[in-house]
Amino acid sequence: MSALAFILAGTLAAATPLLLAALGELVAERSGVLNLGLEGLMALAAALAFIVVYQGGGHALAFAVGAVAGMVAALVFAGAVLTFRANQVAAGLAIGILCLGLSALAGRSFESLTITGLPKLEVPLLSDLPTIGGLFRQDIVVWLALLGTLAIHVMLRHTKVGLIVRAVGENPRAAQAIGHPVIPIRYAALAFGGCMAGVAGAYASTVYTPLWADGMIAGRGWIAIALVVFGTWQTGRVFLGACLFGALSLAELAAQVVGVQLPSQLLASMPYLVTIVVLGLISSNRRRMRLNSVASLGEPFEK
C-alpha cells in the first residue's frame, strides 16, 4: 500500500476521537464555559469503556458507559464553576487531574491488555477504487461521527436551540433578560461536551487502538481544545482541523512505510509542534479572533 493510500484510509479513524471531543468542547465554549479537563474526561471514559468490552459487555454498552462517565465528570466541573463560581481554568485542571487519577485507578488491573475493535463498514463500489478506496472503509463510529458533525453544525447555525446556546455565550445578561436561564443552559452544554469527550475516549480505547494503557490519551484532549481555537469556533473548520491532525498522527507510521529515517520522538512530537505553530498562525490574526471567539468565554455569570 502506498503511503498516500495508507494516510487516506486511516485519517478519518485517527481524527474521530479528536473530532468528537472537540465538537463537545465547541458546544460548551459556545455557551461561554471553557472546560480544560477534557484530557481527563477522555481517559476516564477510555478506561471504563475498555473494562466493559474486556468483561464481555460489548461495544454499545461500552460507549454508553463512556458517555455517562464523561457526562458525570463534566457535571462535577459544571457544579464547581457554575454553582460554586470556581475559577474555570483551575477547576478544569482539577477535574482533569482527578479523572486521570481515577482512570489509572480503574484500569490498573487491565494495563496493556487488548480486545477486538469494530469491523469496517464499506461503501459499495467506492471502497473498491484504487488509492482512495480506503477512505470508504470505516467503522460505524466514524460514519456516525461524520453525521454528528453535520448535526452539530445544523444545530448551532440553524436551530433555535443553537441560537439560544450562542446567545448565552455571547451576551449572558441579555439572554437571561429575555428569559433564557443562563446557568441551566450552561449545565446542559457542559453535560453534552462531557458526553462527547466520553464517547471520544471510549472510541480511542475500544476501537481505534483497542487496548488500555495509562496515559494512552497522550494529549489528545488538549489537542481537541486547541482544535476549537483553530476552527475559530466554527464546526466545519474544527472538522478540517481534526482531519489534519488525524493525518499527522499517522505520519509516524507512514514514514516507516516510505522508509524515511527520522527519530521516532520527533515524529511523536509532530502533533504537539504543529499545534504550537498553527495556534500561533491562527491567533495572530487578532481581528478574526475577536470576531469569532465567544464574548463571555471563561467569565463567571452574575445575575
Binding site: 460554586f84 482539577a94 482533569g96 487531574i97 482527578l98 487519577g101
Partner: peptide, 13 residues
Amino acid sequence: RVVQGLLLIFYLA
C-alpha cells in the same frame, strides 16, 4: 492523583 484532584476541586468550590 485522585486525592490531589479532589483536594483542588473542593478547595476551589
